[in-house]
């Protein structure tokens, strides 16, 4: 069952809402089982690809657009002092805002590479874009997040 959390993280990275992420996980699982899978692709990668397609082709349009990601309480730094935990929570909250502010194109590439672990080539094939575009979207996404974090620290 270890792949369910993985898929859920990916879904959350795309949808930015816990509820939508779980809907996407469920839809993905149903679709993966009902359609043939190419024999030259790993199941886990195929699952991420299906998930991405469902979200962009289907589910997203049916969801009410949300202003910001529902805040997910990250259970971080249990051993740390109160001040450190507060600081870490604040950092994560800022990160969530930064992620929400990313253009959809950057967000999906970042999810594919940093969360799903896809190689640039796989992400490029999935999105039908050149590898150079994958590379540049990732760099811009990370630079934007870095700038956002820096602005508040």
């Amino acid at each position: 069952m270890a792949l369910v959390p993985q898929l859920r993280r990916f879904a959350y990275a795309l949808t930015r809402h816990a509820d939508d992420a779980d809907d996407l996980v469920q839809a993905t699982m149903e679709r993966v089982l009902s359609r043939p899978m190419p024999d030259d692709v790993e199941l886990v990668k195929w699952m991420f690809r299906v998930s991405r397609n469902i979200w962009f082709d289907d589910l997203r349009s049916r969801k009410v657009r949300r202003d910001a990601a529902k805040e997910i309480a990250a259970d971080v730094m249990l051993d740390a002092s109160t001040e450190e935990r507060v600081a870490a929570q604040a950092m994560l909250r800022r990160a969530q805002e930064g992620i929400d502010a990313l253009p959809q194109e950057q967000r999906e590439v970042l999810a594919m590479v940093a969360i799903a672990g896809m190689a640039y080539r796989e992400a490029a094939e999935t999105l039908s874009i050149p590898i150079g575009t994958v590379m540049s979207r990732l760099a811009r996404a990370r630079a934007a997040l870095a700038a956002h974090l820096e602005a508040v620290s």
């Binding site: 816990a18 990250a74 992620i99 999810a111 940093a114 969360i115 630079a143």
Partner: peptide, 13 residues
């Protein structure tokens, strides 16, 4: 930025 991104997404767990 990349690490914080992953932590933020991992919050869904």
């Amino acid at each position: 930025a990349n690490a914080v991104y992953r932590d933020a997404i991992g919050g869904i767990d």
